[in-house]
Design a protein around this nucleic acid. Structure first.
Length: 431
RNA sequence: GCCGCCGUAGCUUAGUAGGCUGGAGCGGCCGGCUGUUAACCGGCAGGUCCCAGGUUCGAAUCCUGGCGGCGGCGCCA
């Protein structure tokens, strides 16, 4: 008997043929001498009809006894059946219970807290299954983009000794007899590596001890970062635009079924093509005020501003040329207007907001030293970063992308905690 | 750092101007049913009302503190 996945046999070619399926009991209903088992595997679900007179008294009783999520092997004949959830059903000839399950804790009523406590079991749900597949596709498409565009994959350390960005809060960890921190960005390390590889990227966790309690924050999140020698701000934006379009296309192509399971309205995703709007911060202030969000020059974008702005676009938007005061020290001041820096944030549409932050880095030694001084930072703490500007510096640019945020937006999720298998937030470090 | 909300059975909850035995649905167990769709019908079991202290004749209900959790702001990706 041929072993198949559910998805493979859900078509007319299989009608009347015998198959063996392996999976888990998703639903079970008994009516007299019949048991309807909805079998789930990684690919899909299918209804299986078990008759007492076919499988025998003993097997029937055994199957009747076990609960949902028991793992089973069943063999039988495929039939078309309008009444079955996925249009086909299996007339079971034999069933084997591999790992029984009794009183599976997750039933129809579910609170957020309960599902998070039982995340190790909830990952089996159809929704989580769909999200995890979309997430896998997104990670794959990210790697494809970088590799097809001349970026080398590399890695920075997770244990570090200092902050990359002034403001962010670091997790302190004991490191033998001194202190170390968990990295919040690999950017500076990537900058060192462009002098060897020119174009580099990494996909790694970043850690932020910010006490943020919002639908778009995790304390541990997956950070895709890239850095490229000889790139200016707009070159980097070009790459990001292409990257986002490719990822969205890939998901639309490969994950139709999953997007449907999640009730994702894909119309918004289908619009996404180049070019994206590129708006200077200065223009954005006017735009915000015209759209009922009071904002004055020098204000950073808050959640209200972000969502109000992105609701007016059906594609991602790049905001560029922020005032120098509201961005970290390493951004390169615009030679034509030193009050702003050559940076960009990409805001996802539909109110999702910031997904990418990036820009051109300062490459002149004197400019960097001046900026460190203005920000009251000690150049000695950044000696290796400063060194890069002493030995054959080149213009370069880079970005950081919150991959979980990308999943959150593309899958159209309510909260970022649904975008990652095991979310880490200020209040949750288990399971 | 700031603001708001929640904690009652395995799960989801009703009950809080203090008052008799804290109700229900789902799940579980027992029985029934040959086409179910989160099946249905009958029966049964199941409670530290988050914890500690206080007010009171009397607390799930009011007060104080603690623990656990959820959401939002700020900050960020």
């Amino acid at each position: 008997m041929v072993i198949k996945h559910v998805q493979e046999i859900l078509n007319d070619d299989w009608i009347g043929k015998d198959v063996e399926l392996r999976g888990w009991i998703y639903r079970k209903r008994r009516t007299g001498k019949l048991i309807f088992v909805v079998l789930r595997d990684s690919t899909d679900i299918v209804q299986c009809v078990v008759e007492k007179k076919v499988v025998g008294n003993e097997k029937f009783k055994e199957l009747d006894k076990v609960g949902v999520e028991s793992s089973i092997k069943i063999s039988g004949t495929v039939a078309k059946e309008e009444r079955a959830p996925t249009g086909y059903e299996i007339h079971v000839k034999d069933v084997e219970i591999v790992g029984p399950s009794f009183n599976f804790p997750i039933s129809k009523d579910k609170s957020d807290e309960f599902l998070l406590d039982n995340r190790h079991l909830w990952v089996r749900s159809r929704e989580m299954n769909a999200i995890l597949k979309i997430r896998s596709t997104i990670f794959g498409a990210l790697h494809d983009f970088f590799r097809e565009n001349g970026y080398y994959e590399t890695q920075g350390p997770m244990f570090v000794t200092g902050a990359v960005e002034g403001g962010s809060t670091l997790f302190e960890v004991p490191y033998f007899n001194r202190k170390a921190y968990l990295t919040q960005s690999s950017q500076f390390y990537l900058e060192t590596l462009i002098f060897s590889l020119e174009k580099v990227y990494t996909v790694a966790p970043s850690f932020r001890a910010e006490k943020s309690r919002t639908r778009r924050h995790l304390t541990e999140y997956w950070h895709a970062e890239a850095e490229a020698a000889w790139y200016h701000n707009s070159d980097m934006i070009d790459d990001e635009e292409e990257m986002i379009v490719q990822i969205v296309q890939k998901v639309l192509q490969d994950r139709k079924k999953e997007l449907k399971i999640l009730n994702r309205d894909t119309k918004m995703l289908e619009h996404i093509e180049k070019p994206f709007e590129r708006m200077k911060y200065e223009k954005l202030v006017d735009f915000a005020n015209e759209h009922g969000v009071p904002m004055k020059y020098g204000d950073d974008l808050g959640a209200d501003e972000e969502s109000a702005i992105t609701k007016n676009f059906d594609k991602p938007v790049f905001i560029t040329h922020y005032p120098i005061e509201i961005k970290p020290f390493y951004h390169r001041p615009d030679p034509e207007n030193p009050k702003v820096v050559l940076c960009h944030d990409m805001l996802a549409p539909e109110g999702y907001g910031e997904v990418i932050g990036g820009g051109e880095r300062i490459y002149m030694l004197d400019v960097l030293l001046k900026r460190l001084e203005e920000e009251n930072l000690n150049p000695e703490d950044y000696y290796w970063y400063v060194d890069l500007r002493k030995y054959g510096s080149v213009p370069h640019a880079g970005f950081g992308l919150g991959v979980d945020r990308l999943v959150w937006w593309i899958a159209g999720l309510e909260h970022i905690k649904y975008a990652i298998p095991y979310p880490r937030t200020i209040r949750r470090v288990k399971p």
